[in-house]
Nucleic acid binder design. Structure first.
Lengths: 225, 225
DNA sequence: AACTTTAACGTACAAATAACGTTATCTTGC
DNA sequence: GCAAGATAACGTTATTTGTACGTTAAAGTT
């Protein structure tokens, strides 16, 4: 039983919503291959016994200074020709980031680090466009049957903030009144005794999401609009 | 940028439905590690530039003689300790098999090859129980929003056959009349001018599924019962 | 106090779901 | 040939959910 050795990388597709736009975190490459192209943060598996998710976490931290994020495996790409250096398999991960408190910092082997709107991406290195397309689709499904959207929001948020996340991801507007009704009736929102003073009009009530309360619900709510 | 080399395997979780029972195809291992344990058909990535799916197809053929099947990537496991030989990453695949025309044949390095009911599995090698649990869950979701169930049926089948596939996978009975209504109204079934003479009572009409017709539907049907 | 803007609540019809009942068609056995 | 038994196939109703709207409330601004 011959066991060929393989080079394995991890790549992380990190999303955040800012001002109603769904954005992807990209790194500008300083070295070949794909020098000066933008790509996903990621890199090779290192030490013996480093798990895939640990490698994704490490690379994301090294290349962007982002830590403590939600990570979920997307898909593993191993097609011939996806990397000019030969067969390199990559395990891709999805990360969902809260905008608040991020302090981006590029690593030494990057010439840039920036958020890009998911619908206005530059030409990308490797098959990273494919990974983004795949992960974007996954995210669209995910917010419909899981509370993933809350991972993109600060701890306290208004119903409007929540709706903007859904609209940014779905790429369309949803009916404001039906949106409220469904979320308020689902039992996943905890009403706070605070209001937000964002605009200069009527302040909106703040809510928070409780993972524990969510788990206790008799059956899983669905958030389709 | 040091690039550690990694051993990579593929493992395939093959399902079939027989007599109303959802079964998993397992191989009894002749060699260490986990000698004489049952496990999923699979093995190491070989030649340079063999894709993951190609390797899964090859291993499934070599170890079970099964070919021409639907394959879909499940998840890639790379935890420390999942293989006693050290860090070995495995990409797992889901296969859906039609019972008809299968000619199982074990390879030389197996001491057994058999179908096992998904709910009565023996102790399994590596983390294969985890892969099965994961893939079983995926299959449950999959038949609700895709025509995956048809991949487990012969080309011509009765509504009863179809319902038995759903019940075997969901692990519960569903209302016969609502089941018929939803499928007949969904537009995915093509009625044939033939009947099935299975039992010794009233013959049932045969249907077939057309992938092309399915694609043409205005919106995707959902098969939740 | 009137105006503007966002927040929050409410209503009506259509569609889908879920839980049932009934009729039809075949084989078997008398 | 006909009743019995079993599966196939069609139908009905109440309830829930979805969808498309209209209305009122509360803040700041002028």
């Amino acid at each position: 039983m011959p066991s060929e050795l393989v080079r394995v990388t991890v790549d992380t597709l990190a999303f955040a919503v800012q001002q109603g736009s769904l954005e992807v975190l990209l790194v500008k490459r300083k070295n070949e291959p794909f020098k000066s192209f933008w790509g996903l943060p990621g890199g090779f598996l290192l030490e013996e016994d480093e798990s895939l998710e640990a490698a994704a976490t490490r690379e994301l931290y090294d290349e962007t200074n982002v830590s403590n994020v939600y990570l979920e495996q997307l898909y593993t790409f191993g097609d011939k020709g996806r990397d000019p250096r030969g067969r390199i398999i990559t395990a891709s991960y999805l990360a969902l980031l809260r905008q608040e408190g991020l302090e981006l910092r590029a690593s030494a082997d990057a010439s840039g680090l920036a958020w890009w709107p998911v619908n206005e991406l530059p030409p990308l290195a490797f098959d990273h466009q494919r990974i983004i397309t795949y992960g974007y689709q996954r995210l669209k499904y995910k917010i419909e049957y899981s509370p993933a959207a809350f991972k993109l929001l600060p701890e306290k948020f208004t119903l409007r903030d929540l709706q903007m996340v859904y609209e940014a991801i779905l790429g369309r507007t949803v009916d404001n009144r039906n949106f409220r009704k469904k979320f308020l009736g689902s039992g996943v929102l905890q009403e706070l005794n605070e209001t937000s003073q964002e605009g200069s009009y009527r302040p909106a009530r703040l809510y928070c999401f409780s993972e524990q309360d969510f788990e206790k619900l008799p059956d899983r709510p669905v958030f389709v609009f």
